[in-house]
Design a protein around this nucleic acid. Structure first.
Length: 426
RNA sequence: GGAGAGGUGGCCGAGCGGCUUAAGGCGGCACCCUGCUAAGGUGUUGGGGGUUUACGCCCCUCGUGGGUUCGAAUCCCACCCUCUCCGCCA
């Protein structure tokens, strides 16, 4: 959430920044917040005065009773005050929960360099590698996966419905190999700490990273326990330090986790769902960082490079896009997408989204740190990025490394992690 | 899932309706004393919010949320977590 004081004191700047997202409802929410904030402070002043009076009277009553004197006159007077206090507290509670509701849906302010507008204003800022030309003989991944016996969509659908692929034999090994390659790279070369977090989390955890309340319809929920299946490792890993104040020596934190990601993808059926491009459960290696505010801008560049390193290792052509404000997730202030070239289907696939969430999630999840011992706690900046999403990486790999005879070669970087160097049609 | 015990300030730990605006200890910080070190003395020391040009003042915070009361760390209710035992189980 945004800092209420920032909304109060830098109102116009906040409005201008949010306007870049192009959502007219945000301005109305800011108006409502400002009014509620004003009401709240007025009411709070009165109620706190009454509480000060009550505290004073309590001391008097205690003194009188200790001296064995009669305190009933004071007690009678305080009955009315107590009544006023509870009415004031009740109204404050109402106002505060309305404010909370608004603050939970007002998105993060985009950074200055983020272009205004919707998806069409996204800027491609870099392309790496030579995108292979499409050709008649190049097959899309769903044909390759089927021909090579790597994935069984029908049996997955039998078990769980469409969008739950089963990886078999070499397909499962390929997935596991890719995961190992990525985790090892980030742990051993990029210095991240590996985390194996829970896949079910509480409502509070989902709220901390801003998947709730807005995106509730996209998440799976276990109703009996009000636990939610994580849509990304960003959720449990960013919340690892929720409610904590990190000591100077504990910053920054760099975590990597591979988890399944569960997404209902409501309304996404049909387009681009063929094969494993858009599924309800997939594995993803995620990088999460907690940084000092002054370091977060450079940290996003660094994190994005680390995600790119995976694609470079695999020799897959990709491009980097700076997302326009209207295309950036609620919690993010700036996002780069990595899109890998899939020459079989002839399209760019989003395999990574790298975001600087500045202090937006840290405020929600209350993640703070001290610059030095004894200093006031400040909110950390949180960052996250996929490195990478498994299915689409596999799609690009299969489509890029196929040859005319229908076989697929294993990229050299992956050889140490699998027990085959070439996949042949079965 | 059942039974029991417990969750207090950075840590340990007392408190079990108003002399607690949380004792005492440890740790941290500042100063004093001691020719170094150790020991000792005095003071200070959490977080959030409101208000103020400022100094400051005020409110909230004893797992969380409700309730009783003029007044709750203390009493009542619900929930969460930790520990012990039992049951079940990879």
């Amino acid at each position: 959430m945004l800092d209420l004081k920032r909304i109060r004191f830098e109102t116009e700047a906040v409005r201008d920044q949010l306007a870049k997202r192009g959502d007219p409802e945000i301005g109305a929410a800011i108006d409502a917040l400002l009014q509620l904030d004003k009401d709240r402070r007025e009411l709070l002043g009165n109620t706190e005065q009454l509480k000060a009076l009550r505290n004073e009277a309590s001391r008097q009553i205690a003194d009188l009773k200790t001296q064995g004197k009669d305190a009933s006159a004071v007690i009678d007077r305080m009955r009315d005050v107590a009544d006023q206090i509870s009415r004031g507290d009740e109204r404050l509670g109402t106002i505060e929960s309305e404010m909370e509701e608004l603050l939970l849906v007002v998105p993060n302010t985009p950074l200055p360099e983020v272009p205004a507008g919707d998806q069409s204003a996204n800027e491609i800022i870099k392309t790496w590698g030579e995108p292979l030309e499409t050709a008649e003989w190049r097959k899309p991944h769903w044909e390759l996966a089927s021909n090579l016996g790597l994935i069984d969509l029908e049996r997955g659908a039998k078990l769980s419905g469409s969008g739950f692929p089963v990886y078999l034999g070499a397909g499962a090994r390929l997935a596991r190999g890719l995961i190992s390659l990525m985790l090892d790279l980030h742990v051993e070369e990029h210095g991240y700490t590996e985390v194996a977090p829970p896949f079910l989390v509480t409502r509070g955890t989902m709220t901390g990273t801003a998947q709730l309340p807005k995106l509730a319809a996209d998440a799976y929920r276990v109703e009996s326990d009000d636990l939610w299946l994580i849509p990304t490792a960003e959720v449990p890993v960013t919340n690892l330090h929720a409610g904590e104040v990190l000591a100077p020596g504990e910053m920054p934190r760099h975590y990597v986790a591979c988890t399944p990601c569960f997404r209902r993808e409501a309304g996404a059926a049909g387009r681009e769902t063929r094969g494993i491009n858009r599924v309800h459960q997939f594995d993803k290696v995620e990088l999460v960082r907690l940084e000092r505010p002054e370091d977060s801008a450079e940290a996003l560049e660094d994190l994005t490079r680390q995600a790119e390193a995976v694609l470079q290792r695999l020799g897959l052509a990709y491009r980097v896009t700076l997302l326009a404000a209207g295309d950036v997730a609620q919690q993010s202030a700036k996002t780069y997408d990595l899109e890998v070239w899939a020459p079989g289907a002839g399209r760019w696939l989003e395999v990574s989204s790298c975001s600087n969430c500045t202090d937006y999630q840290a405020r929600r999840a209350n993640i703070r740190f001290r610059q030095e011992r004894g200093a006031k706690p400040e909110f950390v900046h949180t960052l996250n990025g996929s490195a990478l999403a498994l299915p689409r990486t596999m799609i690009a790999l299969l489509e890029a490394y196929q040859s005319e005879d229908g076989a697929v070669d294993v990229p050299e970087a992956l050889l140490p992690f699998v027990n085959f160097s070439r996949l042949e049609p079965v």
